[in-house]
Amino acid sequence: MDDHAIFRSGLKADLDPDIVVAGEAGTVEDAIAVIAAQRPDVVLLDVHLPGGRGGGGREVLAGSAPLLATTRFLALSVSDAAEDVVSVIRAGARGYVTKTISGAEISRAVRRVAGGDAVFSPRLAGFVLDAFGTAPADIADDELDKLSARELEVMRLIARGYSYKEVAKELFISIKTVETHVSAVLRKLQLSSRHELTRWAAERRLL
């Protein structure tokens, strides 16, 4: 889902051949209709999609809310501003990549999202660390409100440019465990209404 036809065709050409493109759309309305009709496994969603009420990718996510259980969304944007990234993630996207990403990487990200995992770019990890703070959670804290020490470590390594595989090697854990941690962080990012997260978001006019 992207409003630039050139970018869409370029992306299609870049994707691995075994990823079938089920449909395309250039506006919010088209996107919601196409997603409802095709029921794809993964939707590559531009954050700044024209049409609708001006909500862009967020609006598509809201419009496709009943499908969120079966269809996964991967946000895609040229923007790496905090408000864009965090708002689509909180609206339900399973990951976020920038458009400068290579074809191989985006194919990998699509597969990962299709498998139910989250895709974190270093920048998104940076935002997460910024929002949740870098101090690990106490046991007493509400678990949604802070990242555990392990999750913090994983986020830090991702922010430092480590791939999931490298994170796993560095922390002597399996890739599966890394993915579990990342998914947990994603869930916290989506569900937490923590005071600090709210304040952080308010400072950046996210909510």
Binding site: T100, P122, G126, D130, T134, A159
Partner: peptide, 9 residues
Amino acid sequence: HAVEVVSVG
């Protein structure tokens, strides 16, 4: 070469 900076704090 692209140099990607992520900063926290």
